[in-house]
Amino acid sequence: MVLSWKAGGVLLGIVFFAAVMLVKPIGVSTQFVIFDGILWSAVDSTVVQKSETAKKGYASSNAYLNKSGGKYAKNVANPINYSFVFVLAMIGGATLSALLRGGVGRQERQMPVVWREKFGDGVGRRYLVTFLSGVVVLFGARLAGGCTSGHMMSGMMQTAASGYIFSIGMFLTSIPLAMILYKKEA
């Protein structure tokens, strides 16, 4: 069901190359901010506004959305842009793949077996821990200015120093932590 590393790696390589050749390198985590911004503007229409003076034509009362000449503010105001639609299409592509292979088993949908074997069947515990992990991961990704896609894969393929620095940081914590957390008792 899962592709061999050779076939999978070739496919992944072609997709990342095609993205750069056609438009720009792949990245995902910025779109969490854009989605937040869309929700925020929906409840407070003053957050993002048109601006004659901003480089991108939009300004925001939030310093982060306002940075780089209102780049994020512009995308919040116009969600039908390349990067946001890219992520929506990614969700669609994964859905299609899952449907074609028959989806994920009922138990596995709640939590992966590797977690279940170690921490038991408690659904609430798994959901709470993944929620908190999401908080830390996206905060970290925004602090780093990218995630596994944008920094590690897209960065390293361009020989970017930032891509290597990010990958070192990520594996420095993730490998020891996974080894300790999921250690199988002898």
């Binding site: 969490f32 991961v137 120093a161 891509g163």
Partner: peptide, 28 residues
């Protein structure tokens, strides 16, 4: 599109690594 290298890239990467290891997911 090469991203800027700064101290926060390492710190943010390390933070991401924590949740990545615990949950088994990254943003994408």
């Amino acid at each position: 599109s090469v991203k800027t290298a700064y101290i926060g890239v390492l710190i943010g990467g390390a933070m991401l690594g924590i949740g990545f290891a615990v949950a088994g997911y990254c943003p994408g």
